[in-house]
Design a protein around this nucleic acid. Structure first.
Lengths: 188, 188, 188, 188
DNA sequence: CATGAATGAGCGTTCATTCAT
DNA sequence: AATGAATGAACGCTCATTCAT
C-alpha cells in the first residue's frame, strides 16, 4: 500500500494522489482499507517518506562512504542519488513531491522537515570540515547544500516528466558543476 | 483578482488556493465572479503566470542588460531575481508554486511550460556564445541553466517559509557559487 | 432548511437525521448546500434548537402569564406545551431529540444546555417564591422541575411514536398529577 | 462483551457505541468477534437490554415485595432503582440510552418495547387495584406510571452526566413527590 | 475463539461551476 | 459586475459486516 502510494504520488503528484487512486493501484476496492491502516492522509504520507528515506539511505550511504576525499564524496552523493532514481524510478520523485508540498503547520509532518533539515545540517558540518582541511574553497555551506539538493531534486522531477531524460548523465554534469563550485581555487 | 490569486497562492500554496480563498482575498462575496471572468482554474493560473512573467521580465531584463560580460550578466540574473523577491514578496513564490505543480496533460498550461522552456533555451544560447568566447568554461549549458533556476527557486520557496531568511544574501552567495561553477575548469 | 431539519429529526431521530435526509426533505439535490449554509452539523442543530426555542417561548409564555396563581401557572405551563405539540407536531419532538442526545464536550452546544439549565433555574426560583407564599407545599424545587420536564418530554416523545396518542389529554392528567404533588403534604 | 457494551453505551451514548469502541473495551483487537457472536448491532443491543433487565429485576423485585401497602411499594420501586444505579453505575444508563433511542421499525427490538410496555401494564394493573382499595386517589394510571418512569430515567441520565449528582437523594425526593401525587386526598 | 484484511455503504465536507437575479 | 443559491463530483473517513486464516 505504501508502494502503491509511492507510485501514484510519483505519477500524478502529491495532491492528485487521492486515496481512491492509491486504493485502485493497490488492488483495493475501496478507500476504507487505507483509512483503516493509516491514521489519515498525513500518516500515509509519513510512511511514504519514511520508506523512501530508508531505501535512499541504504542505497546512498555506502556509495558515499566508499570514498575518502570530500570532493569524491560530494560527487558520489550526487551521482548515487540519480543512480537510485534509475533503479527505483518512483521513490525519489514521490518524496520530492511530498516534501515540496509540505507547509509548516502540519503537525507530525514537521518531524520530516526537521529530519531533512538535520540531514542537511550534517552535510553542512562535513563541508565545514572539508573547508578547514582545504579540500573545499570558502563558501556558505548552507547555501551550497541547498543548491545541490535543489538541483538534484530538479533532475528528479524532470526525469518523471520527460521519460527520455537521461538523469544519470545530468547527474554527472551536476557533479562536475558542483565540483568546480566547491573546488579550491589554487587547484585551477 | 489576479493579484489576490498571487497572494493566496504564495501564502497557502497552489492546491490550497481555492476560488473561495481567492474570492475572499479579492473582497468578493462569492466564487461565481471568478468562474465568470476566467474560463476555469487553469485559465486563472495562466493569467497569474502571465502577470508574474510580465512583472519579472520588466524588472530583471534591464538589470541584466546593464552588464556586458557573461559572468556579470549571470550574476545580475541571479541577484535581480532575488531583489525582485524582496520588492514583490508574492510574485515569484506564486509562479514557482504554479509551475512546479504543473503536470503535463493540462492543455493550455503546456504553453507556459513551453514559454519557460524557450526562456531557458535563450539563456542556453547565450551561454554557448560565452563559452565560445572563452568567458565560461566547458559544461552542459542545459544542466547549468536548470541548476541555477532550481537553486534560485529554492531560495524563493525558502523565503516564503522562513520570514527571517535573507534571500538577497543567499542570492549573492548563489551568484558566487555559479560564478565559480562557470569559470573554473575541473581538475579531476 | 431548518424546518426540514426539524421534520427529519422529529421523524427519524437525532442521529438518523443525516444531511442527506434533510437535503432530500428540503428539496435539495445534494448535501453540499447544507454544509454551505451551516458551519457543520452542530451549527445546524444549534439553529434548530434556537428556532424551536423561539417558537416555543412565543407560544408558551403568554399562556403562562395569563394566570396569576402559581398552581394555575404550573398547569398552564404543562398544558400549553402539549397544546404547542398539537399545533406544531415536530418542533418539540425535534428539540427533545437534540437535547437528549447531547453530551458534554460538544463545545458550542453547551450554550444550549446552559440555556436550558437557566430556564429551569428560573422556574425553580418561581417555585421557591410560591412555596414561601404558601401556594406550594415543601419539596425540592429542582427535583420537581426536572420531573415535570421529564414527564412532559416523555409525552412529547410518545406522541411522535404513537400517532393515536392523545397528548393533550395526557397533558391534563399530568397537570393534575403535579398539582397534587405540589399541594399535598406527605402524610408518612 | 455485553458488559463492555454496557459500559461503552453508558459512557458515550447509544450511537457513539460503535463496535470498534466496544471491542477495544472488551480487550478484543477487532470487531469481527462481535459480529460473529451477535447477529448484528440490534442483536447485541437486545442482549444488553436483556442483561440489564435481568439484573434490574433481580435487584428491584424483592425490594418492592418486601412491602405490603401500595404507597410503600411505589416508594420502594423508585428508590430501589436509584439504589441499583449506585451499585451498578452503568446498567441503568445503558438501558435508558438504548430504549430512548429505539424507533419503531426495528423488528426484533420491538419485542423489548413490548416487554417494557408489559412491565408498565403490570404496574398499571397494580395501581388500579390499589385505587380500588382506596390506597391511591383517582388518576390515570398509565400517565402516572410513565411519568414516574420518565422522572426516574431522567435522574439516571443526570447521574451519568454529572458525577457529583446525588441520585439517591433525588430518589427520595421523587418518592415523596409521587407519594403526594398518588395519595388519597382524605388522608391529607 | 480470535485475528486482521477486505468490502461497500454512508457520512459531512470542499470544490469549481452554473444560473437567475 | 456582483450576488447567492444550487449542483454534482470527489474527497477522507467511519462503520458494520464478511471471511480466510
Amino acid at each position: 500500500m505504501v508502494a502503491a502510494a509511492i507510485d501514484v504520488i510519483a505519477e500524478t503528484g502529491y495532491h492528485q494522489a487521492s486515496f481512491a487512486k492509491i486504493a485502485e493501484r493497490a488492488g483495493l476496492s475501496s478507500t476504507g482499507m487505507i483509512s483503516y491502516h493509516f491514521d489519515g492522509r498525513d500518516d500515509l504520507m509519513r510512511e511514504v517518506v519514511a520508506e523512501v528515506m530508508r531505501v535512499a539511505e541504504a542505497y546512498v550511504r555506502p556509495r558515499i562512504e566508499a570514498h575518502e576525499s570530500a570532493p569524491a564524496r560530494l560527487r558520489a552523493s550526487i551521482e548515487s542519488n540519480l543512480d537510485l532514481l534509475a533503479e527505483y524510478p518512483n521513490h525519489l520523485p514521490a518524496i520530492v513531491e511530498v516534501l515540496t508540498n509540505l507547509r509548516g503547520g502540519d503537525p507530525g509532518m514537521d518531524s520530516f522537515l526537521d529530519k531533512t533539515e538535520a540531514d542537511l545540517a550534517l552535510q553542512v558540518e562535513r563541508i565545514r570540515e572539508a573547508q578547514r582541511a582545504g579540500e573545499f574553497c570558502d563558501f556558505d555551506p548552507w547555501v551550497m547544500v541547498r543548491a545541490i539538493r535543489a538541483a538534484v531534486d530538479d533532475v528528479v522531477r524532470r526525469a518523471t516528466l520527460e521519460p527520455d531524460f537521461d538523469a544519470r548523465r545530468a547527474g554527472r554534469e551536476l557533479a562536475d558543476l558542483f565540483d568546480r563550485a566547491t573546488r579550491n581555487r589554487n587547484t585551477t
